[in-house]
Design a protein around this nucleic acid. Structure first.
Length: 407
DNA sequence: CGTCCACAGGAATGACGGGCGG
DNA sequence: CCGCCCGTCATTCCTGTGGACG
């Protein structure tokens, strides 16, 4: 039996220094039992929600804050404590946590709500109104105080409108045996601009704002977590500081900080190091970004890939929608793919922009019209790397478009 | 100072695959 | 099985617009 290349990998893993004690602690879905620097928010949310223990409906609450400021963690923390207290006092309280961005549509939100009051709803087939009616009657039957947590509602409201929110905020008027309270969580602080004022006012009976963490606070959070995550004396002080600093620069995102630390640990472990250094954190930063882009690149639809490759081919510091459409047109012909409209291409470009693969800005060139200036945001090498290994795209990658030397 | 380019991007509508309830 | 509804992608039609040019 020959020596496998894997022997090294496995040996290294077993014999090498173990850095992690418990890697799960650094994942963002992990709910710690201490949330440093959020004592105020915990108390406020607790106070607001407490009336349900005496069988009274609590106020609706609106929570604002950017990603990684602890909104979700605090909410889950408070509600899980509330749940155990409710059992203790025999209060009929139930809650349902829904991440609206993951759930995706109002239909599915109502379906999820229905499920949590014990109804089973097909994932398609019914009209949204029907699902809502079933949910309402199912809820009324169960005679409870129902707390609905709508995490990342801004995502849903922005592309579906706030009609479903309006229905939800008014549901109590038609319930006789149950009561509903809503906790809305938004990443976007300007959400009220998108909301019907009636919805907004009934939703924000209480408001809670989560400020971003500063570097010092992030440091404490990481320190706390790293004690559980790593073996003693594994994490260097400078690695800790740089992680907090990097995440603080990025709107004080604790999630980001935890990711950095976890990946840095993995990088260090793979390198066989016995401590995690500042350099490992910097490598982790690149690593995370690299993976993010590669994953995005692979998951694009055919036409989005072609649009991206058109930008790649133009190879200018910035190109306009029209220019890109010409190249895209050629690439479609080359591949025998159906051609989308320029209108459609516009929104695909915008999608690529929000994924950070491309940068698109509308500019006016006066007499020469108004268009989007589009620029590649990722390295050309990365595109070669990902699409070069795909036979279907290899020829497209090397294809040289005809309409290139026009200005 | 008005014109007019080269699009932006909203609204309505349709085609399609999937799945229901009756 | 039918008629209806879902979400998704795409088209068609449309009105809006910043600013260099004349």
């Amino acid at each position: 039996m020959g020596k496998s290349v894997l022997d090294d990998v496995f040996d290294n893993f077993v014999k090498g220094v173990k850095l992690f004690k418990d890697r799960e602690v650094l994942r963002h879905d992990y709910l710690p039992n201490r949330l440093p620097h959020r004592e105020n928010q915990i108390r406020l949310l607790g106070v607001t929600v407490a009336p349900v223990l005496k069988d009274a409906r609590c106020s609706n609450i609106f929570i604002y804050g950017k990603t990684g400021t602890g909104k979700t963690a605090v909410t889950k923390y408070v509600l899980s404590h509330l749940e155990t207290k409710a059992k203790e006092y025999g209060a009929q309280v139930k809650f349902c946590y829904i991440n609206c961005r993951m759930t995706g549509s109002e239909y599915r939100v109502f379906a999820a709500l229905s499920q949590s009051v014990g109804l089973s709803i097909p994932f398609t087939g019914l009209s949204t109104g029907e699902v809502f009616d079933r949910f309402r009657s199912g809820l009324d039957q169960s005679r409870i105080l129902f707390i609905i947590v709508l995490d990342e509602v801004d995502a849903l409201i922005k592309d579906r409108g706030d009609a479903f929110m309006y229905e939800l905020t008014r549901i109590n008027e038609t319930l006789s045996k149950s009561k509903v309270s809503i906790i809305g969580i938004s990443n976007d602080l300007r959400l009220k601009e998108f909301l019907d004022p009636r919805v907004f006012s009934s939703l924000s009976e209480e408001e809670l704002v989560f400020r971003p963490y500063d570097a010092g606070e992030l440091r404490n959070i990481l320190l706390d977590r790293s004690k559980l995550a790593f073996q003693d004396d594994v994490l260097s002080d400078s690695a800790l500081s740089i992680s907090s600093a990097l995440a603080a620069a990025e709107h004080g995102d604790a999630r980001r900080a935890l990711d950095l630390l976890r990946v840095a640990g993995e990088v260090a472990e793979r390198a066989g190091a016995k401590t995690i250094t500042e350099d490992h954190v910097r490598q982790a930063e690149k690593h995370i970004e690299h993976n993010r882009v590669i994953e995005a690149l692979n998951n694009l639809t055919l036409h989005s890939k072609l649009v991206l490759l058109s930008v790649y081919h133009l190879n200018k510091s910035s190109s306009t929608t029209g220019e890109i459409y010409d190249i895209y047109n050629e690439l479609c012909g080359e591949m025998g793919a159906g051609l989308l409209t320029q209108r459609r291409l516009g929104t695909l470009v915008n999608e690529l922009d929000s994924m950070g693969l491309v940068n698109a800005k509308v500019v006016s060139m006066g007499r020469y019209g108004r268009t989007k200036k589009i620029r590649l945001e990722i390295s050309r090498g990365l595109i070669k790397e990902v699409y070069g290994s795909d036979n279907r795209f290899n020829q497209i990658l090397n294809y040289s478009p005809k309409s290139m030397h026009k200005t």
